[in-house]
């Protein structure tokens, strides 16, 4: 009588043992990757969350509750950095939804296939230029002896010359305007492949109905690449919140704190002032903001 449940649980044990034994190859092959992300992603992530509640210099930490967050809320530099992020974010969205779409539309509707191929190359090959090189080139363009001032001399306006990145009135604007004509390789390729994915019949039908090109762009092309527009806009938002190496190179947050952004403030708090706990609190806020954009993106993409 007592034997039945016992043998059943024995059976279950044997079954589990079998399952685990069958699992061994799977575990072995997945182990290196799982181990890598646990050590270098999960552990630092949790450590960062916990240490945002501490005073930490990388060696010793003391629990101080929400003190770091309270300090941040009253920190003028931090608030400035968020306003700057908002500006970069709006500029980022604007850049994403204009120039790459224009370029991909033009290439897509070019009649000559050979020219379309050539222009595709023209917009894609800049991929090989390291992002840093690009930023450093723009640093030169805006520098006092750089291209922009030389251009102003050329058109007979030497009085308009300025130290574009070195002056608080122009530094932020220069950073925002950097990168003309704003045709990102990623944006161009994503839009172009989305346009190429639109069924041919739609365009044929539109042509039979006598639709002009303006109607076609706004009634067919743009609505059909809407998912890509949303996705790239969300990526632009996340990029605006997270990217700070550009500003680190161009102005280092200055002059004063006029071009400070949260990422750079985090970087400086940690590696110039050894305030690791305070910097971790900035990281947590950045995580919340970019997380909100990600969720918004997922929601919008699902809606269609």
């Amino acid at each position: 009588m007592a034997g039945l449940p016992a043998s059943r649980s024995e059976n279950a044990l044997v079954k589990l043992g079998k399952q685990v034994r069958r699992s061994i190859p799977g575990y072995t092959l997945a182990l290196p990757a799982v181990l890598a992300v646990v050590i270098f992603s999960y552990y630092p992530f949790l450590s960062g969350l916990l240490h945002s509640l501490t005073r930490w210099n990388g060696l010793r930490s003391t629990f101080i509750g929400l003190e770091n967050f309270r300090e941040l809320m009253q920190d003028q530099i931090f608030l400035t950095s968020f306003i700057n992020t908002a500006k970069l974010l709006m500029a980022g969205i604007l850049k994403t939804i204009t120039m790459p779409i224009l370029a991909s539309e033009l290439v897509f509707w070019l009649r000559s296939r050979r020219l379309a191929y050539v222009f595709r190359l023209v917009f894609v090959v800049p991929l090989v230029i390291p992002e840093i090189t690009n930023v450093l080139l723009w640093q030169h363009i805006f520098s006092y002896r750089g291209a922009l001032n030389n251009f102003l001399m050329l058109i007979g306006r030497p009085d308009w010359r300025a130290d574009w990145l070195g002056h608080p009135d122009t530094a932020m604007l220069s950073i925002i305007l950097m990168g003309f004509p704003y045709i990102s390789v990623l944006g161009f390729l994503v839009y172009l492949s989305a346009l190429q994915g639109i069924p041919e019949e739609l365009f044929d039908a539109a042509q039979i109905d006598g639709v002009n090109w303006l109607q076609r762009v706004f009634r067919i092309d743009l609505p059909l690449i809407r998912p890509q527009i949303i996705m790239l806009s969300i990526l632009a938002c996340i990029g605006a919140v997270e990217t700070y190496f550009t500003i680190l190179i161009l102005t280092d947050g200055g002059p004063g704190f006029s071009t400070m952004v949260p990422g750079l403030y985090l970087y400086k708090s940690a590696f110039s002032h050894m305030r690791f706990g305070f910097a971790s609190a900035i990281a947590v806020i950045m995580l919340l903001v970019s997380g909100a954009f990600t969720l918004l993106g997922i929601r919008l993409m699902k809606e269609r």
Binding site: S41, Y43, F45, H51, V241, Y267, A279, A283, M286, L287
Partner: peptide, 10 residues
């Protein structure tokens, strides 16, 4: 979904 800047210091 987790930005690398969040894990930078740890």
């Amino acid at each position: 979904l987790i930005p690398t800047v969040v894990t930078l210091i740890p």
